[in-house]
């Protein structure tokens, strides 16, 4: 029971991270119907910017943890958003009316480019970072001394994710931008005719997705304390799985899917073999797509004839 609880906490933390990346996939897919293959790399770039900002802050002598976290989050979101914007502008926008495969190939190319660009600049070695937010609560203790812990970091991650989710839901539901996004999702041409700036809306969607991925990057840097240029690929595929599992195009679905994937990974690693946890995730992806392609919260699609 205690062990289970501990894995639940770990899984939720992991799930929050996947969920944040998954939102980027789901928003982009919803609005332009393409898998933004480079989104995993965006998250990776977010993680690198986080590491670099931490190091810079350390050099200038800022060590008060809350301030550090705030600065790192803002920097990572800002710079990563610029990456998201640029990628859409360069690699996707010119291909919006091209054959279906072209933007996907372009995205794969972008993903390869970004991976190797970061490797070239920052080196292939893993980047370790000392723990920034140590400590935590002990929730309960088992007779044999096993302690169920929730670290401050885990708490921060979960709370931050909840706050961001709330904020983004508000943006989508309440603001002009959110309305424009939902309009473009339905019919881009018509939205354009009615005065929605479609290009700008799509750009902002990428910016928002990238910013959220950057937050996930910051979290993963803090959580695992080590990153490399290759983390984007696997995290990207898993987050995409989460987005599909939740029902692609659905924001709460992406979060839910992320939590599911996180929990499955945590429990699989805890009770089965850690080596095959990725296989478990992929198998879930395949099973979901076969038996419920519309995902948990997605609307079923009828084959139009």
């Amino acid at each position: 029971m205690e062990y289970f609880l501990q894995q639940l906490i770990n899984g939720l933390t992991l799930g929050a991270i996947y969920g944040l990346i998954a939102i980027g996939y789901t928003m982009v897919y919803g609005i332009i119907g393409m898998i933004n293959f480079a989104h995993g790399e965006i998250y990776m770039i977010g993680a690198f910017i986080a590491v670099i900002t931490f190091l810079v802050l350390g050099t200038v002598g800022i060590t008060w943890v809350p301030l550090m976290l705030l600065v790192v989050l803002i920097m990572a979101m800002l710079f990563t958003a610029v990456y998201g914007w640029t990628i859409e502008r360069i690699a996707y926008r010119p291909l919006r009316n091209s054959p279906r495969l072209a933007p996907l190939i372009s995205a794969i190319g972008m993903s390869i480019f970004l991976q190797n660009y970061v490797q070239l600049l920052q080196g292939a070695r893993v980047k370790p970072l000392p723990p920034v937010v140590p400590g935590g609560f002990s929730l309960m203790e088992r007779a044999d001394g096993f302690v169920v812990q929730i670290s401050y970091l885990q708490l921060t991650i979960i709370l931050l994710t909840v706050a961001l989710m709330y904020g983004f839901t508000q943006i989508i539901q309440r603001t002009e931008l959110g309305r424009a996004q939902r309009a473009c999702e339905q019919d881009k041409t018509m939205a354009g005719l009615l005065g929605v700036n479609v290009d700008r809306t799509i750009s902002l969607t990428f910016v928002m997705g990238a910013a959220l991925a950057a937050v996930a990057g910051v979290m993963v840097t803090l959580y695992y304390g080590v990153i490399d240029f290759y983390i984007g690929f696997l995290a990207g595929v898993k987050a995409f799985t989460a987005a599909v599992l939740g029902g692609i195009g659905s924001l709460p679905g992406a979060m839910l899917g992320g939590l599911f994937i996180g929990l499955i990974e945590a429990f699989w690693s805890a009770y089965f073999t850690i080596e095959y946890k990725d296989v478990a995730t992929f198998s879930i992806l395949v099973l979901v797509l076969i038996f419920r392609p519309s995902g948990l919260l997605g609307r079923p699609e009828i084959e139009k004839v």
């Binding site: 360069i90 291909l95 190319g109 480019f113």
Partner: peptide, 21 residues
């Protein structure tokens, strides 16, 4: 050698932009 994969990725993007089919 070290620029190979960077160029490969960028090349994929550029060729798609240049001639999507």
């Amino acid at each position: 050698e070290q620029y190979r994969m960077v160029a490969f990725g960028m090349g994929m993007v550029l060729i798609m932009l240049w001639r999507p089919r």
